[in-house]
C-alpha cells in the first residue's frame, strides 16, 4: 500500500498544526464560558479573544456568531433574518438549497455563474455561495451586493469554501463559514453579521442568536487556523494548471474551464468512465477524491450543480472533483495524473 494521497480538501482539510496546538491549550481550560466564577471567566476571556481574532483575520468589522458549522450558520441566518422571501443561487450547496418550503432558485449560466433577476424585490434574502464547492466557480458577490442593496434586499454569502483563501465579500450582510474547510476543527463555524438588527434574536448564548454551551477549544482552533500562513495557495495555482493540462491531454474535460475558479477546486469529466468506477479505481490506488460534495457522495445522486450548468445526466455521471489544500504536494498531482491516464486508457470501451 502506497502512502495515502488526499485530494478531497473541499470535503474537509486536515487540521493545521497551529489549530491542533490551540485546541490542546483549550482542552486544559474546560470551564463553561457562561459560568460567573473565575474558571468560567477565564474560559470566556479565551472565547472572546478567539472571536476577535477570527474577525480580524477575516477583516470583518461586524459581529461574529459562533455556530456548530456552516449548515448551522445558514440555518440561523435563514431562520432569523428579517426578510420577506428567499432566493437561493442555483448552484448553492445543499445547506442553502433544501429550504422549507423549497425556495425559488436564481437562474444560472452555462459557466456556473449566478444570474440576478433584472428586477429585485425589496425584502428578498439572496443566499449565494461565493465559491461553488463542486466546480470552484467564484461569484462576484461584492458587485452582486451593490445591486441587491440598491433594491433594498439582503445578501447571505456562503463562504465555506472560500474563507481563508479569497477575500470575503465584505459588502455581504451575512456570511456563513465553517472552520474545517480551512484547517480548523470540524464542529465549529460562524455566522458573520454586518448589523445584528438584521436578525431576530431567539434567546440563549451568542447574544441570543445561537443557544448551547460554547465550545471554546474549537473556537481557539478556528482562530489559529485562520491566522496560519497561506503561502501554499500560490503553489496550488501552479499545480492545478499542470493538472488540467494533463487531464486535457488524456482526453478529459474541465468543468467551467473559462469561469473564474478558486485554485484549490477542479472538476473533471473522463468520457466513457462513470465517476463511481473512477472513485473506486483511485481509492484502490491510494488516492482520495470525490464525486461532487462529500455530503451527497454517499447517496450517488447526480450533482445538481452540474445539471444547473446544462450538463446532461450522462456527462454529469462521469465527473469527479479534485481539491487541494495546505499539505498538498506537487507529487500528489503527478500521482493523480498517472492514475487518470491509466484509468482513461484501460477502462474506456473504444
Amino acid at each position: 500500500m502506497t502512502a495515502r494521497i488526499y485530494l478531497d480538501h473541499a470535503a474537509t482539510t486536515p487540521l493545521l498544526p497551529q489549530a491542533r496546538t490551540a485546541m490542546l491549550e483549550g482542552f486544559a481550560q474546560w470551564a463553561n464560558p457562561s459560568s460567573p466564577h473565575a474558571a468560567g471567566r477565564a474560559a470566556r476571556a479565551l472565547l472572546e479573544d478567539a472571536r476577535g481574532r477570527i474577525a480580524r483575520a477575516l477583516g470583518w468589522g461586524g459581529s461574529v456568531i459562533l455556530t456548530s458549522g456552516a449548515s448551522d450558520a445558514i440555518a440561523v441566518a435563514l431562520g432569523r433574518a428579517k426578510a420577506a422571501r428567499l432566493l437561493a443561487g442555483e448552484t448553492a450547496h445543499d445547506a442553502g438549497l433544501r429550504l422549507v418550503p423549497a425556495a425559488p432558485r436564481l437562474g444560472g449560466g452555462a459557466a456556473g455563474q449566478v444570474i440576478l433577476p433584472d428586477a429585485i424585490e425589496a425584502g428578498t434574502l439572496f443566499a449565494i455561495q461565493q465559491v461553488n464547492s463542486e466546480t470552484g466557480v467564484i461569484q462576484p458577490l461584492d458587485s452582486f451586493a451593490e445591486r441587491i442593496h440598491a433594491a433594498g434586499a439582503l445578501l447571505l454569502a456562503d463562504c465555506s469554501q472560500s474563507a481563508g483563501k479569497l477575500p470575503l465579500p465584505q459588502a455581504a450582510d451575512l456570511i456563513a463559514l465553517s472552520a474545517h474547510k480551512l484547517g480548523g476543527p470540524i464542529g465549529i463555524g460562524a455566522l458573520l453579521v454586518r448589523d445584528l438588527t438584521l436578525l431576530r434574536p431567539a434567546g440563549g448564548q451568542e447574544q441570543g442568536y445561537r443557544a448551547g454551551t460554547e465550545a471554546m477549544p474549537l473556537a481557539l482552533g478556528f482562530a489559529a487556523a485562520l491566522e496560519a500562513p497561506r503561502d501554499w495557495l500560490r503553489d496550488v495555482a501552479e499545480w492545478r494548471a499542470r493538472l488540467e493540462a494533463g487531464v486535457k491531454a488524456a482526453g478529459g474535460e474541465i468543468v467551467a474551464e473559462r469561469a473564474p475558479r478558486l485554485a484549490t477546486i477542479g472538476s473533471y469529466r473522463m468520457p466513457g468512465v462513470s465517476a463511481q468506477a473512477q472513485l473506486i479505481r483511485f481509492d484502490m490506488a491510494g488516492i482520495a477524491i470525490s464525486a461532487g460534495s462529500a455530503c451527497s457522495s454517499g447517496s450517488l445522486r447526480p450533482s445538481h450543480v452540474l445539471s444547473a450548468m446544462g450538463w446532461g445526466a450522462g456527462a454529469t455521471s462521469e465527473v469527479v472533483r479534485v481539491t487541494m489544500g495546505h499539505d498538498s504536494r506537487a507529487a500528489d498531482i503527478d500521482a493523480f495524473l498517472a492514475q487518470w491516464q491509466a484509468i482513461a486508457t484501460g477502462t474506456r470501451k473504444t
Binding site: R4, D8, L15, F27, W30, I289, S290, A294
Partner: peptide, 29 residues
C-alpha cells in the same frame, strides 16, 4: 455547568485529530 475533560477522553480526541477524512466521503480516509 460543565465537567473537566477526562484524560482518557483527551487522549482519544488527540488520536482522532489525525483521522481527517470527512465521515461522509466514500474513500478510505
Amino acid at each position: 455547568a460543565t465537567t473537566a475533560l477526562a484524560p482518557e477522553v483527551a487522549a482519544a480526541m488527540v488520536a482522532a485529530m489525525d483521522h481527517y477524512g470527512n465521515p461522509n466521503s466514500a474513500h478510505r480516509l
